[in-house]
Amino acid sequence: MNKIKAGDKAPIFNAKNQDNKDISLYSFGNKTIILYFYPKDMTKGCTIENKEFSELIKEFDILDAVIIGISPDSIESHKKFITKENLKQMLISDSTKEIANSYGVWVEKSMYGRKYMGILRSTFIIKDGIIKEAFYNVKSSGHAEKILNMLKNF
Rank of each mutant, 00 (worst) to 15 (best):
K3M: 14
K5C: 13
K5D: 13
K5R: 04
D8F: 08
D8G: 03
P11C: 00
P11E: 02
P11N: 02
P11F: 00
A15K: 03
K16S: 13
K16Y: 15
N17C: 04
N17D: 15
Q18C: 01
D19P: 01
N20Q: 09
N20K: 13
I23N: 11
S24A: 10
L25F: 14
L25M: 12
Y26L: 14
S27G: 04
S27W: 03
F28W: 11
G29A: 09
G29K: 10
N30D: 15
N30G: 14
K31V: 05
T32L: 01
I33P: 14
I33R: 09
Y36P: 13
Y36K: 03
Y38C: 12
K40E: 11
D41H: 01
D41C: 08
M42R: 13
M42H: 07
K44M: 11
K44G: 15
G45H: 09
C46P: 09
I48V: 13
E49Y: 06
K51I: 14
F53C: 12
E55N: 12
L56I: 03
E59P: 11
I62W: 15
A65V: 05
A65T: 02
A65N: 02
V66L: 00
V66E: 00
I67K: 01
S71R: 05
S71Y: 08
S71Q: 02
D73P: 04
D73M: 04
S74I: 00
E76Y: 10
S77N: 11
K80R: 08
F81R: 05
F81P: 11
I82R: 00
I82M: 03
K84V: 12
E85C: 03
L87E: 07
L87M: 12
L91S: 07
I99V: 14
S102G: 05
V107S: 06
E108C: 04
E108I: 08
K109S: 10
S110N: 15
M111D: 13
Y112C: 10
G113T: 02
R114P: 06
R114Q: 13
L120K: 11
L120P: 06
R121M: 01
R121T: 05
T123D: 00
I125L: 03
I125G: 04
G129E: 12
G129L: 07
I131G: 05
E133T: 08
A134G: 12
F135R: 11
V138K: 08
K139S: 13
S140T: 08
S141E: 10
G142N: 07
A144W: 03
I147Y: 01
L148Y: 07
N149R: 01
N149H: 04
L151G: 06
K152E: 06
N153L: 08
F154R: 06
F154H: 11
F154V: 03
F154Y: 10
